[in-house]
Design a binder for these strands. Structure first.
Length: 724
DNA sequence: CGAAAGGCTCTTTTT
DNA sequence: GAGCCTTTCG
């Protein structure tokens, strides 16, 4: 197959420019992934490059897997030794091989969010800091940010400017020590330590530099300082570095991704070739224009001209509902309509939203109507308590010095080792500067606990040691069975709430383990644990299933669907209220919205609800500002209450309007009556030159902006007939 | 020691 | 509303 034949001129240019640095700025749907894949294929097939000399970095494992599949197709054979994966996966592999050089235990475990938090809590405790005063989460993200900027605790100390940062520093320092003792690294360490490794070990670096003649990075706009430093190190010899990205789709700045990497790239590689991919193959003209209307309102941005030869298509539908339940119901019925009336399958449809909590109402509707759906994200499989319990056993078997995992399972299922005992053990471990596991063995020798506790502890140690011994012989699935049998985990689970369902998850875990049963036991365990740490939920999205996809806007990056619903187009949701006071965060929310819009091929629905109960209490939100930015001629707006409310209002008494009852101080959420528009709910109140501009969502006529002094709004009782 | 209940907080996005 | 923490009771 001619690798260049199917490419447009710009794409071809991007593929053929193999010498030196290349920056590809690619709009949504412009065939960016295709370009990277074809470029690799071109390097191998046309230029005769050994795949082992190429590194391609993707944003998710799923993208990596798909790229490998496509490469195999393009090349007509397995591509083999190509280094292909996420930054984290690639770094993990490098550190497995070379970590020794910077004092990293070869069996290091990778801690996830929850493990990290546990360790931060422990650090706070040891430093006698009040956990109420210093939120674990805040410290966690401060530490993560520091690492993403390659700041060691010592570096961080240099730039302390506030008392909080002082606390961060102390916690960070202790946290890092604890990680070391646990022979563990966190996600950020994978990047930071790899950079440190290359910084301090020039021999190792030059080996890798010589190996990777060509480096490609996808989703470059979402790389952070550490990732940028890493590719700069690796490309230090050949400078054949090709990065692909779209500044308008940068949505991970909260994870320290920095758009400025694009600027740095142009500065660090002044000879870089710039290729623009501006033709969109995915979306209708209308959808593309809607996207452009939304993103153009960002000030911190270089304008770019996207175009498409696709047809204009249907107008974008703006759907207004009263509640999120109605919103969800609409989505489901609309999907059913599309499937029955047009050539649309369930798998072509996706519902996207800002926060995971929004999925609940949607799920309920999908379940009620029996429409198959698939939820991406939320509580991820490998984060479920029962799954993590069993993984903790595997981790301890693999590396008994992993105290966080050991502490997790020491009394799960309950075996009479209580909190008191555990904290005494932990204190002892700390004074001895030993791992929990070693402390356990020590304590058993000294017999310093009561006989009953000693017996319990001995039982646990025997269990673990037995498992460790078996782990060398058994394959992974067998080892898992051994754990389950030895701990009575099944009985333990079945005695709990949702026990059956949770046991199913263990069965699923066992299936996943079986895939590794062919490797030798040592290697299988190591590979499995690493994989389990680095998988993202999106990685398991299988497009072959014919189901609707429910997904956050963040995870939707890089995907495409013929039909896209974006739920919750409201102020406070998208943009999220957390971003209100920072203009640059609002810009990121806008990019997020843009990402969602541009996922759509044929049809796009923007949904907003007047009322939404998120986090327990209900709130009334005005339409998202992003909706206001769309040219009216591109959309059709439909209110769902028209028919819904006529039914629900029937029989409700209607108060007679009298001006003397004018409401003087309307509050958001008040129910009001207007002589012309009827009943409605106050959405917002803005002071205006001694008067107030009140936005009211009327049941029959939609949202109106009214001047309080002229509107003669009357406050009315909330009636249960309101569809709230 | 362990289960249960009550109180508290904080509500974003994830490799 | 949920998850986490603390308290209480058996």
């Amino acid at each position: 197959m001619d690798i260049l034949a199917t490419l447009n001129p710009a794409q071809r240019q991007a593929v053929e420019a193999i010498e030196g640095p290349v920056l590809i700025l690619a709009g949504p749907g412009s065939g960016k992934t295709r370009v990277i894949t074809h470029r690799v294929a071109y390097l191998i097939k046309v230029c005769g490059m050994n795949p082992g000399h190429i590194m391609a970095v993707t944003f998710t494992n799923k993208a990596a897997r798909e790229m490998r599949e496509r490469l195999d197709q393009l090349l007509g054979q397995e591509v083999g030794a190509l280094t292909l994966g996420t930054f984290h996966a690639i770094c993990a592999r490098i550190l497995r091989h070379e970590g020794k050089a910077i004092g990293l235990a070869p069996r290091f475990v990778i801690y996830d969010d929850e493990d990290q938090l546990n360790l931060i809590k422990q650090s706070l405790q040891e430093l006698n800091l009040d956990p109420k005063q210093y939120a674990h989460r805040a410290l966690q993200s401060a530490i993560s940010a520091a690492k993403s900027h390659l700041l060691s605790p010592e570096d961080y100390a240099q730039r302390i400017q506030s008392y909080f940062e002082e606390i961060v520093h102390r916690t960070y320092q202790r946290y890092q020590q604890l990680l070391g003792q646990n022979e563990a690294v966190d996600f950020d360490d994978l990047l930071m330590k790899t950079v440190q490794l290359f910084n301090s070990q020039s021999k190792i670096l030059s080996r890798y530099q010589s190996r990777y003649v060509h480096i490609l990075v996808d989703e470059f706009q979402d790389t952070n300082v550490a990732q940028y430093a890493l590719i700069k190190q690796l490309a230090g010899k050949y400078h054949n570095i090709c990065v692909v990205g779209d500044p308008d789709q940068s949505i991970y700045s909260w994870r320290s991704a920095d758009l400025r990497n694009i600027l740095s790239f142009e500065k660090d590689y002044p000879d870089a070739r710039l290729v623009l991919l501006e033709q969109n193959y995915r979306s209708t003209k209308t959808i593309l224009e809607v996207g452009s209307d939304v993103i153009s309102a960002n000030l911190q941005r270089k304008p770019k001209e996207l175009w498409t030869e696709n047809e204009a298509g249907s107008p974008v539908a703006i759907i207004e509902s009263y509640t999120e339940a109605e919103e969800a119901q609409y989505v489901v019925s609309e999907i059913e309509k599309l499937v029955s009336q047009e050539q649309i399958s369930l798998r072509d449809c996706a519902v996207m939203y800002r926060v995971n909590a929004q999925s609940r109402a949607l799920e309920e509707a999908f379940m009620r109507y029996g429409v198959p759906y698939k939820l991406i994200g939320g509580t991820r499989f490998y984060q479920r308590r029962e799954v993590k319990d069993i993984i903790a056993y595997l981790r301890v078997i693999h590396n008994p010095h992993d105290n966080v995992s050991l502490a997790r399972i020491i009394n799960i299922p309950g075996r009479g080792i209580g909190e008191r005992t555990t904290s005494q053990l932990q204190a002892r471990a700390r004074t001895d500067n030993a791992s929990l596991y070693n402390t356990l063995e020590q304590v058993l020798e000294e017999k310093i606990f009561t006989p009953r506790i000693i017996q319990a502890l001995a039982g646990f140690v025997t269990l673990i040691n037995g498992l460790i011994a078996n782990s060398h012989e058994l394959n992974l699935a067998e080892l898992l069975d051994e754990i389950l049998a030895g701990t009575g985990y099944r009985e333990y689970l079945l005695g709990k709430e949702n026990g059956e369902e949770r046991w199913e998850n263990i069965t699923e875990l066992r299936n996943a383990a079986r895939e590794h049963s062919e490797l030798n036991p040592e290697e299988a365990l190591a590979t499995f644990l690493e994989k389990v740490s680095l998988v993202a939920d999106i990685d398991n999205l299988d497009e072959k299933d014919d189901t609707v996809t429910l997904i956050t806007l963040h995870q939707a990056k890089g995907l495409e669907f013929l039909v896209v619903f974006i739920a919750g187009m409201e102020e406070g949701v998208l943009p999220h209220r957390k971003s209100f006071d920072d203009p640059s965060e609002i810009e990121e929310e806008r990019r997020l919205c843009y990402v969602g819009i541009t996922r759509a091929g044929k049809r796009l629905y923007l949904l907003r609800s007047f009322r939404r109960s998120l986090f327990g209490s209900g709130s009334a939100n005005p339409a998202s500002r992003f909706i206001q930015d769309i040219s009216p001629h591109l959309v059709t707006t439909k209110g769902l209450w028209d028919k819904v409310n006529i039914n629900s209002i029937a029989g409700v008494h209607t108060p007679s309007p009298t001006h003397s009852n004018d409401i003087s101080d309307p509050k958001v959420g008040d129910h009001v009556y207007h002589s012309k528009f009827g009943k409605g709910i106050v959405m917002s109140c803005l002071p205006d030159k001694g008067d107030q501009i009140v936005t009211v969502a009327f049941e029959e006529s939609g949202a109106k902006k009214l001047l309080l002094s002229l509107a003669h709004l009357e406050k009315i009782e909330k009636t249960t007939d309101f569809p709230l």
